[in-house]
Design a protein around this nucleic acid. Structure first.
Lengths: 134, 134
DNA sequence: TATAGTAGTATACTAAAGTATAGTGATATG
DNA sequence: CATATCACTATACTTTAGTATACTACTATA
């Protein structure tokens, strides 16, 4: 990255930058919006959850949004949905192996968020949990 | 993370999860939307850019959105704005030291996006640039 | 029989995000 | 003098994201 950042380099930078942005844009499509990352994070944390549990864990989400985002995440193979033969019927949402690959992204966001919090709120409170491992 | 993911642990999980989500939500507030990450990535790549250059580099952005997002990023100290005494006047936007800390996040998104692309489009094309270093 | 819990869906709405298009005021260039 | 570049701003609009509220169908429990 550093040193390549001038516009007079031999190879057109725009091409390099485009190549770099392309997968980032792919990732953003998956993670965009208010709820996808919280849901993925929750399922990475708890491994398995029912619909109602997710409704409680992901604070503030409405059933409509939860339902919609779960469908999206299932289509993208990040989570799995299994209807359990219980009474009343429960549905188990679980993180897939593929979904677990998101952990590296969440961890980076977590680390960055910790530092941001230190910088802007001048507090280390948030550091009490996890220390960015996970 | 693994092994702690049961709801029967001694300490209420919700509290743990909340502590984990808090900085992630902080980070999401900064990175949310269609344009912030592309702009930050561009300035991390080129180090310095004028308004017009950014308009060209960040493909598809309108001057209104660019202006709005640049203001936001400046307020959050990720970028700096300097009016140059040239004719016509140019404005130099540059990444700050703090803005450079975002690179770890972008790099993770890049890596994840590469793998996602492999999985979903079955192509390794995107791997031609950078190999996730940067 | 009333109440509560399961997993959602339906409808209507608001608010935010983003787009499209044009224009400003300064200065320089042909 | 006409045109172009710079850094934006203004206005109006559309689209999407998200909210609020109510409801369905099923089963269990008091």
């Amino acid at each position: 990255m550093s040193g390549e950042g001038t516009r007079n380099a031999k190879v057109p930078m725009k091409e390099h930058f485009g190549n770099y942005m392309l997968p980032i844009k792919d990732a953003l499509e998956i993670f965009s919006g208010k709820w996808k990352i919280p849901i993925i994070t929750a399922l990475n944390f708890y491994e398995k959850c029912s619909f109602k549990e997710l409704e409680r864990i992901v604070e503030g989400i409405t059933p409509k949004m939860l339902s919609k985002e779960l469908k999206f995440l299932e289509e993208n193979m990040l989570i799995a949905r299994e209807v359990k033969d219980t009474r009343p019927v429960t549905v188990e949402y679980s993180i897939t192996e593929y979904g677990k690959t998101c952990r590296s992204v969440m961890t980076e966001l977590y680390r960055w968020g910790i530092e941001h919090r230190k910088k802007f709120f001048n507090t280390e409170e948030a550091e009490t949990w996890g220390k960015g491992k996970c």
